[in-house]
Simulated assay, not measured.
Amino acid sequence: MHKVLVLYPPPADPAAFEQHYRDVHLPLVRKLPDMLAHRFTLAVRSQEEPSPYFAVFEADFPDEETYVASMASPEGQAVGADVPNYASGGVVVLHYDVETTD
């Protein structure tokens, strides 16, 4: 399995971030081809005060090739193009293969 982790530093306007994220961005995300699952939180807690991140998004894809193809699709391009519309604090995107332990 291939995971995507998106970390959002605090935005200039948290209420505007949340409104756009829920009403515009997540509907675009839901259209990503071959995404297996996704989840997010706007309630990030940290041992550091304040937390260096405001929101976290996670998604699962079968493998890296599928993730790359999904983000290269028109739907993926729309997701990427929307980020500057709400993420005034920037964004950190990580993706990686997941290993399981037995």
Rank of each mutant, 00 (worst) to 15 (best):
A43N: 13
E58M: 07
N85L: 10
Q19L: 11
L7P: 07
V44G: 09
R45P: 05
V79R: 00
L42D: 12
Y96D: 13
T41N: 06
V56M: 10
A16D: 01
L26Q: 07
V56F: 05
E75D: 09
V79L: 03
Y21V: 00
H25V: 00
T100D: 14
E65K: 13
G80T: 06
T66M: 01
Q47P: 13
G76Y: 06
F54H: 11
V56Q: 04
D13C: 10
P84W: 14
Y86S: 05
A12H: 08
D102K: 15
P11H: 06
A37P: 03
Q47R: 15
P9F: 06
V6H: 04
Q77L: 10
V92C: 10
G76T: 02
G76H: 07
Y53F: 12
M35E: 14
Q47S: 13
F57Y: 07
L5S: 14
Y8N: 06
F40M: 09
T66N: 01
V56R: 04
E58R: 01
E48N: 14
S51A: 12
P14Y: 04
H20P: 03
S70V: 01
H38Y: 15
A12P: 03
Y53D: 03
F54M: 11
Y86Q: 02
L26T: 07
P52W: 14
M71W: 06
A55G: 10
G76Q: 08
P74D: 02
V92F: 09
P52K: 11
T41D: 05
A78S: 14
V56W: 00
V29I: 11
Y96W: 10
A37K: 08
H95N: 14
F17A: 04
P84K: 12
T101V: 09
M35R: 15
A59I: 01
S70H: 07
A43H: 13
M1W: 03
H25L: 03
R45Q: 14
T101F: 12
P11V: 03
H95Y: 12
G90A: 14
S46Q: 08
E64N: 12
G76V: 05
S88H: 02
A81T: 00
R39M: 14
P62R: 13
H25P: 06
E99G: 15
E48Y: 15
S70K: 02
S88N: 02
Y86R: 04
V98W: 06
E75M: 08
M1Q: 05
